[in-house]
């Protein structure tokens, strides 16, 4: 287990394009897959029934489901931003399933920064979930960060929030 340490509140001005986030390493077990599926209320058997996954899906084992991968990405990003980081948009492409026995490594770089016309500070992150040398899932995320200590992206509503 990782302890779930979360950073202090990252500010927009602290971020540099091209910068990297700390790597997060996770050993995947059958419990990781099953707990993730049930926590996201995904009862489909390929996420808890190994025989079904092999015989019906043609995969080598049960595998992480989509909502739980999203939850892993969110956790990875907000570990770095702290609680004032607010996700706006997340796109991910799953190339290869993640199975029990895999060692996941989450890595990310800052691809861009922008202050939109509503005055919200955004960063774009290119995140990958890798197992060994393979990128199993690639994720692009747009995250709002406070411009200063008095700013809070969570207070934005309506036209002031443009994810």
């Amino acid at each position: 287990m990782t302890g779930g340490a979360v950073a202090e509140r990252l500010l927009y001005g602290d971020v540099v394009v091209g910068g990297s986030l700390p790597v997060l390493n996770i050993n995947v077990t059958a419990s990781t897959v099953v707990l993730g599926a049930l926590a996201s209320r995904d009862w489909r058997p390929m996420h808890h029934d190994r025989d079904f996954a092999i015989q019906r899906n043609g995969t080598r084992d049960i595998f992480l489901n989509t909502p739980n991968q999203a939850a892993w990405f969110e956790r990875y990003i907000t570990d770095w931003t702290g609680p004032t980081g607010r996700l706006g948009r997340m796109t991910f492409h799953m190339n290869t399933p993640v199975f029990p026995g895999d060692h996941m490594a989450f890595m990310a770089t800052v691809d861009g920064t922008e202050i939109d016309s509503a005055g919200c500070g955004w960063i774009t992150l290119a995140v990958v979930l890798r197992v060994g040398d393979v990128t199993n899932t690639a994720c692009t995320t747009r995250v709002a960060l406070p411009l200063d200590k008095d700013d809070n992206p969570w207070t934005r509503r309506g036209d002031a929030w443009r994810p």
Partner: peptide
């Protein structure tokens, strides 16, 4: 379900665990 989901990915974001932080933010 919020806590179960956070537990499934070891998400310690205080926004979801600490009511004072949630009230503030």
């Amino acid at each position: 379900y919020v806590w179960t989901t956070c537990a499934s990915v070891e998400n310690g974001n205080p926004l979801f665990w600490n009511e004072t932080v949630a009230n503030e933010l």
